[in-house]
């Protein structure tokens, strides 16, 4: 039903009813912001990405393919923008190095952090391609097919990467003392 509503809102928008775009912003800005934040672990960057995604979406509404869901379309933009930003800031290499050298005790690293933030920040220890999978599947609750569309990779690849990502993330959480081995 929401997808149908989205399509109606987009058509209204294209007809000049910009209020309809506000509804789309209200509906999806939180998801986009959170996806970007979990990708980049930086509030300002996540805000920039969110703004940029909605501006680009508005700008390109004419080319929106109604066969797809609007939120998948903007998620794709958000992920691409986040990846571009990461490349620019060369965070990728730094994060992977960070993962390799996480020998500090959990207490030192996360003394004041809440569990939610400890887990969220642990995501940054994953490579970008694995982190995206965890974010889209677990945090955004998207299906394999939706993730496949957003990342422009086959469903089979989504599954294999997701399975690997889970294994690596489990190891990260164990290493950081957040979960214990079963």
């Amino acid at each position: 039903m929401i997808e149908q509503d989205d399509a109606i809102l987009i058509r209204q928008c294209l007809e000049g009813q910009s209020k309809s775009f506000e509804v789309l912003i209200d509906r999806y800005q939180k998801g986009i912001y959170n996806a970007a934040f979990r990708m980049l672990n930086n509030v300002q960057d996540a805000e920039d990405i969110t703004q940029s995604v909605f501006i680009k979406a508005y700008e390109n509404l004419n080319s929106f393919d109604f066969k797809h869901k609007f939120f998948n379309w903007i998620y794709r933009m958000a992920i691409n923008e986040s990846l571009n930003l990461m490349k620019q800031k060369k965070r990728f290499a730094g994060m992977e190095a960070d993962y390799a050298s996480t020998d500090d005790s959990p207490e030192e690293m996360f003394e004041a952090a809440e569990l939610s933030e400890r887990i969220g920040s642990s995501l940054m220890c994953l490579s970008a391609e694995h982190r995206i999978l965890i974010i889209l599947r677990h945090l955004q609750d998207l299906s394999y097919r939706e993730v496949s569309y957003i990342l422009e990779i086959p469903e089979k690849t989504v599954k294999s990467r997701l399975f690997t990502a889970r294994q690596i993330f489990k190891d990260v959480l164990m290493k950081r003392g957040i979960v214990k081995n079963a």
Partner: peptide, 26 residues
């Protein structure tokens, strides 16, 4: 564990900035 990750609320300024950037009569 992943279910423990709480969603954050984006700043209300984001929407304001987006709306300032786009033009109503599109």
């Amino acid at each position: 564990m992943l279910a423990h990750i709480e969603e954050r609320d984006p700043s209300p300024n984001i929407k304001k900035h987006i709306l300032n950037a786009i033009q109503p009569q599109s």
